[in-house]
Design a binder for these strands. Structure first.
Lengths: 250, 250
DNA sequence: CGCGCACTTGATAAATGTCAATCTTTGTGG
DNA sequence: CCACAAAGATTGACATTTATCAAGTGCGCG
């Protein structure tokens, strides 16, 4: 789970395939130019790579360009809580700005590429591009809303509701950043990931997922989950879905 | 639980008693002047007042000036999850910026006063005072870190650990914004609040709190909790405490 | 081929929830 | 000043959910 990632050359933001999606708001040329200069490189990693590590200092912020990853924290005895998942376009590492030391880790779920930004240039971003500064805040606020919902889920939903919410949630997030919606969307997670997100044991998670599968709402593949009926999952969880207008991409 | 709050006249930020505390970073005169003009009024409310309501549109941001409050979400059938607590200096309402509609509610726990800001003037803040813009992001990021820890707690800590963490957490936060540390600090919550924060039933919460009381770590008063031994609570939870450097106050 | 990892499953244990009373404190009205 | 109501806290008995333990299956890969 700790293979070394590698850094490669930069691809210009102006040609970023993500940016073309309707999901992301249009940037002005000036903004785009700055973001492009803000980006200092790319990080390519295979599945299971730890990109950021709890307790470590990191000089970087990352935006997931392609692939899948997740944020998590652990207790001393190894208990792990997954906090959220990253889909392409998600910015991560901002939390470290508060004191420089990361309080959570980030690990990839699949081969992934990240854009690398220098944390030290953030003040410059705020100074020269107030609109982008606002966007960063907007993204932080959006992450907070997702955490609120996850907390509600773990604290107050039943095991079946939690699992339904989680899979619907990830599915919706991934859908929104996939160019041509693929025929089948396989979420590359194991049941251990699901368990660590829901705050359940792996055995109980398995039994819960089987119930969803028995109702034809999901299909479990090897190390991957396919959502067959998002609407029914959302209904079980009592969740309305993500309020999605276009969002900034930094 | 729904008494009408009332709005009163403004008190200048330059004389804000909070700002004098070492806990808050110093602002330049220009920054202070802007913040003061950014503030358009004050909201005074008694205990149990709903300041922001899930689903509603709010044109305002609030900073808690004095008192206590909490953020929460509810499911349709009434299950409630408390997301975090507000102590003086905390900014709330930013989340609504993402789409205008609040996705959580805010309610007071004690007689409280809030500074009122116009959400519509946020862009001006970012444009004219990049440092303050960065501060807003910093605050959002800090809130996210607290949520991460709460989520870890609810998802992976045992009932006793959760209760220990929560009380130590609230106690530390309140301590840091109290001018002369008072001899006794009474946290004005009911066991129902604790239950809704920890994701436990009220009965089990009661039994858990009694264990902590039996060990002389806390003392439960009428509608209030007094922490007697923070360090031991932190040890039980395996929590290191808040990394507290000075923070901005907006 | 055999090992490791993910996934399954049944039996049992432990944690937590629900129900139903009781008790205490506080506030209110007579 | 007392009676009473309401809200919060407490407790025991019991039900349900979830965790743990222990095996097994199947598949991919060296």
């Amino acid at each position: 789970m700790n293979r070394t990632p590698s850094t490669t050359r930069q691809v210009a933001c102006e040609q970023c395939p993500l940016r073309a999606l309707p999901h992301f708001r249009n940037f002005t040329d000036t903004e785009l130019k700055f973001v492009s200069s803000f980006k200092t490189g790319e990080l390519v990693a295979e599945a299971g790579a730890v990109i950021l590590s709890e307790g470590a200092h990191s000089a970087h912020l990352f935006t997931l360009l392609s692939g899948w990853a997740f944020r998590y924290k652990t207790l001393e005895d190894g208990r792990r809580q997954i906090l959220n998942y990253l889909v392409p376009g998600d910015l991560v590492g901002l939390q470290g700005s508060v004191l420089g030391e990361m309080e959570h880790s980030v690990e990839t779920l699949a081969p992934s590429a990240f854009c690398i930004f220098q944390r030290s240039r953030l003040p410059q971003l705020f100074r020269n591009h107030p609109g982008l500064g606002f966007d960063v805040t907007w993204l932080a606020s959006r992450e907070e809303r997702m955490l609120d919902e996850n907390l509600l889920s773990v604290g107050r939903r039943t095991a079946l509701e939690r699992a339904s919410y989680l899979l619907a949630f990830i599915h919706e997030r991934a859908r929104s950043v996939l160019a041509p919606p693929p025929a089948r969307l396989l979420i590359p997670i194991t049941q251990q990931h699901v368990a660590d997100t829901l705050g359940l044991s792996i055995v109980h998670t398995n039994k819960t997922l089987r119930k969803l599968a028995a109702r034809n709402l999901i299909k479990w593949h090897d190390r991957a989950c396919e959502v067959l009926d998002v609407e029914e999952l959302k209904a079980i969880a009592g969740w309305d879905g993500l309020p999605e207008g276009p969002r900034p991409l930094i």
